[in-house]
Simulated scan of single mutants.
Amino acid sequence: MSSHASKKVIYAALVGNFLIAVTKFGAAIFTGSSAMFSEGIHSVVDTGNQGLLLFGMRQAKKPADKMHPFGYGMELYFWTFVVAILIFAVGAGISIYEGIQKTLEPHPVDNIHINYIVLGAAIIFEGFAFSVAYKEFNAARTKDNFFEEIQASKDPTIFTVLFEDTAAMLGLLVALVGIFCADYFQIPELDGIASIVIGVILALTAMLLAYEAKGLLIGEAASPDLVERVEQIAGDHPAIDGINETLTMHLGPRDILLNLSLDFRNDLPAGDLENVVSYLESTIKAEFPEIKRIFIEAQGGTEPSGSAN
């Protein structure tokens, strides 16, 4: 998926969440609804999260230097992990706290119709942001199973927004049901319980996002299809007797490090070996532009040598 598509999703979510946050807080102040206040906190956290993702994308584009010879691509993974922490600590924490307070000290929700109007508008805004994120997610899908695609994805910007928007839609529905039931049955504690449920939804979202971000941070290999094709390119060359090891790691969504350990023919002259290495590098990069760096190690029958880009 292109960087432009990722930014499109994030900007759509950022604008939508900002507008929703303003309307939710206005309704919460006017009506005294705990669930609406929790939803306002949720939207503020989401707005901040989109800002952090945009910052992470900007940092990831910084060129490599002496201190970071492989570049800054993994900055995006770090800021995705920070987003998960914020959702858990701020969004879930405040929502659960507010819900407990409202349950222990219940008070009726005033001007209930204001909440319905705001929640209805919020569902429309969130639905639009969700549709944009889901459309971009589907455009880049390579697997039929949704959760397998999430696990295989190396671009956290799309699935982060998708997770947030899904949690937001669920939270809005919970708030709507909680406020309605609190008013209809005259049980104001239900408004607080709805806030707690929203907090639990946010906590589960944060844990799932943190799990995915952790895998990217500690280093994930490229897709099996890419590795298989690279080994096929190397194995088909007549100068190579075998492949000892293929190591890959994503340094960013579109930045892969490749290390190949190859068994070259024993009678291959050193000059020819260099030509073969150059051919493999150019051929692999031509087919997979996301492979930015290739290290080739020669083993078996010749003195070890290496080539790096």
Rank of each mutant, 00 (worst) to 15 (best):
D255F: 01
E39S: 06
F25W: 11
G93L: 05
D144N: 13
V90T: 08
G306C: 05
D236K: 14
G16A: 15
V227K: 10
L52G: 03
D46F: 00
I243H: 09
R58T: 10
F130C: 12
A139C: 00
V230T: 12
L268K: 02
V118L: 11
P188I: 11
K102F: 02
M207I: 15
D65Q: 08
P253K: 09
I179C: 10
K7V: 14
D236S: 15
D65Y: 02
V90A: 13
K61C: 06
F30K: 10
S34Y: 04
M207E: 01
G300L: 10
G178Q: 04
E149V: 03
P106T: 06
L258A: 13
E287D: 07
D46S: 09
G300C: 09
S3P: 00
A222R: 09
A234K: 01
S6I: 04
P156S: 14
V177M: 10
T31P: 09
P156L: 15
L190F: 12
G242H: 05
E136G: 01
S2T: 15
L54W: 01
P63W: 07
D65T: 09
Y97I: 03
E303N: 07
L247Q: 03
L14A: 11
F180N: 11
F295I: 15
F264Y: 08
N259D: 09
F159C: 07
E39Q: 14
G32C: 04
T160H: 03
P108K: 15
L251I: 02
A286M: 09
W79E: 01
H107K: 13
T166E: 05
G26I: 08
T283R: 07
A21E: 00
E149H: 06
F180S: 14
A210D: 02
E212L: 08
A168G: 04
Y116G: 12
V227M: 08
T205K: 12
P224H: 05
K24M: 11
F295E: 10
A234T: 11
V276N: 03
I100E: 03
L14V: 09
G171Q: 07
F185D: 07
G26F: 10
L76Q: 05
